[in-house]
């Protein structure tokens, strides 16, 4: 009996080896920003599976013009004004072992380097729905992250627990994730298991570096956007306001409500 047991064990041990694969995985995403100026961008997620490091690159928007300008043209029906800012590439680098996120943010033509903590996603996997995205059979999961509710579709057959932007922690690669208002949508376009080694940023070269709290409070979401009230006050007579779209106080980024804000409320 023991012999049989040992023989069976031996059978398990013998296995044939196939081609070497690298520890680097790469996935490309299409990102839809359905914001004031709708844009489609390309995102590239590079993963060092061995070292638990990921970097997500977001490309420039190809469709916009490369100059930043602000122009007022008087048409026969009124005035139109356009403020366009230059498009710059950005990235998000996550080190799961050392538990930090370094990201390059751009706001109104300025570059900022932000250090953030890794968010512990609380995923709800209690869904039986399955959906095919391309050839991948995906399952549904939902979560809440900094002010928005997201629905994600992850592929179990790609057992890599990462995804675009800062999303991670699902049993498979996130093939599609979007927020419930449809404003931000990331969709997997392609993936590669044998990728080149990703280029990670030299962290000491990321200057000026500020914490996420500093960045969002002082740069991204100032309390009242001065520009918005300024433009509203320049409208000529005859243009009536029936309701004020308080755009100024509406946060429009991906992350709109933060843990540190909720802590203050509890006090």
């Amino acid at each position: 009996m023991l012999k049989i047991f040992l023989n069976v064990l031996l059978l398990f041990i013998t296995a044939s080896l196939f081609g070497q694969k690298t520890p680097y995985f790469e996935a490309k995403y299409d990102i839809y920003y359905n914001t004031d100026f709708p844009q489609i961008r390309k995102g590239q997620l590079q993963i060092d599976v061995e070292k638990n490091l990921t970097i997500f690159h977001i490309s420039k928007n190809n469709n916009s013009s490369t100059e930043s300008n602000s122009a007022m043209t008087s048409t026969h029906y009124g005035l139109t004004y356009n403020i366009k800012y230059d498009d710059i590439e950005s990235f998000i680098e996550i080190n799961f072992n050392k538990e930090y996120i370094f990201s390059k943010e751009t706001h109104r033509n300025n570059i900022y380097y932000v250090r953030d903590t890794i968010y512990d996603f609380n995923w709800n996997l209690n869904y039986s729905e399955e959906k095919k995205i391309g050839t991948l059979l995906c399952k549904k999961a939902t979560t809440y992250f900094r002010g928005r509710n997201y629905t994600a579709w992850y592929a179990i057959e790609i057992p890599i627990g990462y995804g675009p932007y800062k999303f991670h922690g699902l049993p498979g690669l996130i093939a599609k994730i979007s927020d419930d208002t449809g404003t931000f949508i990331w969709t997997l376009a392609s993936y590669k298991v044998n990728a080149e080694k990703p280029q990670f940023e030299k962290n000491d070269e990321l200057k000026p570096l500020m914490s996420a709290k500093e960045y969002y409070e002082e740069v991204r979401y100032q309390s009242v956007t001065e520009k918005q009230t300024m433009l509203q006050s320049k409208l000529p007579k005859g243009i009536k306001l029936i309701s004020v779209s308080s755009d100024a106080n509406v946060r429009k980024g991906i992350e709109i409500k933060f843990e540190w804000e909720e802590e203050i409320k509890e006090d």
Binding site: I13, A15, S16, F18, A175, K176, Y191, K192
Partner: peptide, 28 residues
């Protein structure tokens, strides 16, 4: 558990999924 290797497609795999938004030149 001991896992057995399997051959993988080492090339890039393209996913074709229905897009909620299509951009073609000047039409979105």
């Amino acid at each position: 558990v001991i896992l057995i290797e399997k051959s993988m497609d080492l090339d890039e795999v393209i996913i074709l999924a229905e897009r909620p938004i299509r951009v073609q030149n000047d039409t979105i």
